[in-house]
Each structure stands twice: as structure tokens, then as C-alpha cells.
Amino acid sequence: MSKVWALAGLVVWELYRRKDFYVLFVLTALITVLMGSAGLLHGVRAVRYVEELCLLLIWISALVIAVTTTARQLPAEREHRTLFPLLAKPVTRTEVILGKALGCWVATGLCLVVFYLFFGLVSAVREQAWPLASSLQALWLHWWMLAVVVAMSLLGSLLFATPAANATVQFLVAGGILLVGRHLNTVALGLPEPGQTLIYGLYFAIPHLELFDVRDLIVHDWAPVPWWACAAATLYAAAYAAAFLVLAAVTFRRQPLQ
């Protein structure tokens, strides 16, 4: 396990040394502050509108960070040939996969903490209230959703030729699931038979990332999700992430290095 942590630490360190995260964070903060002050100028107290915007930007940024960071890992190791000295050490390829996944996940988690602190600041300034439990829950669920995204992207980086192709596919898949994943059952029920079973099967097969999207609950001041449901969602995400990682490890072990 210490080897996995060493590999994970390397990923976090790289993200810290690279500047993408700062760019995205500054962009998010800037847009939120600009839009927030635009509302102030018109004399309306648009709390929910600013919160919603801020959360949307956070979701987009986090997805971008998670996908681009993860999609880059293994191709970069190959391209820079750092994979060889790495695998010459007593680490297995499974450990490499686990370390990369853990690193990307922890790194995106750290980014999320920064983002949500900013969000807390925004809502505290605007609303003079800080629903701590809801925010923590949103952060937690968001982080677990990104675990699935990271695992998927890592698997994709072994299957697709370039990181760019992989990232595009990941964005499409994640975006598609977030937008229509919840409604696939409704769609299926409206179809004739072969299609119905097919789409319903797809509905159960895909990881329902939209489950972890509790933005509306925060924005509109609902109470937090019951903790048992939160735990169930966590298990759900962990199961999917594990499945994707197993697939990735098997693929990686069977692939030639050159």
C-alpha cells in the first residue's frame, strides 16, 4: 500500500506543480464574483442565482480537472518513457493503476475542497447562513462521483489512442449521463420491445453520476439527503470505481509496453 501512496503522491505533486488548477480556480472565482456583483448593481438580492452559477462552474471545473489529469497520466508515462524505470522497480502494473487512480482522486478532492471553501464564502457573504451539513454532503458526493469519472478516464486512457480522444469521450459520456441518465427508464418505457429491454439494461449498466448532483438541494435550501441514502450512494460509486479499476488493471497487464 505504501507503494500505491508513493505513486499517488507523485500525481498530486504534479498537479500542484502544473498550473491548470489555478487557472480554473481563478476563472471560477472571477466569473462568480463578476456575475454576483452584476446582480448587486441591479438592486436585486439574487442569492440562489449566484449560488447556482458558482456550483455549475465548480462542477464543470472539477470535471475538467479530473478528466484531463487522469487521461494524461499513463500516456505521459509512456510518451516520456518514465514507465520503464518505474516498472523496473518492484511494483506491479496493478499497483501503478491503483496509485494513479488514487492520486488523481485525491488531487481532485483537494481541488474540490478549495472550490467548496470558495462556495461557502460566496453563500456566507450573500446569505449570511452556512448550511454546513449540506455543503459537506455535497462535497462528499461530488468527490465520489469524481472517483467514478477518474476510474473511467483511466480505463479510457488504456483504450484510446490519444489523451485528447479519451478526454472528449469522457466528457461526452459524463455529460450525457448527467443530463439524461436519470430519464433513461422513462425513455425505455416509451419504446417498443427490443428497444425497451436494451435501454432499460443500459439504464442499469451505466454509472448514474447524476445521483451525486445535489446542487439543487443546496441552492434551494433543502435539508441534507438522509445519511443512509448518502452512504448507499457512496457504496454505489465505490462499486463502479472498483469495477472500472479492475478492468483497467486487467487491460494494462495484457498490453505490451511499447
Binding site: 458526493l141 427508464n185 422513462t186 418505457l189 445521483l211 445535489v214 438541494l217 441514502a229
Partner: peptide, 14 residues
Amino acid sequence: PRDWLDRLGRYFFP
């Protein structure tokens, strides 16, 4: 709710 996923999912949005 149409299935267990649907039922669970409804805790996560208004």
C-alpha cells in the same frame, strides 16, 4: 418510482 435506482435517486434532488 419505477425501480430501486429511481427510488434512491429521488432523495438527491428536489
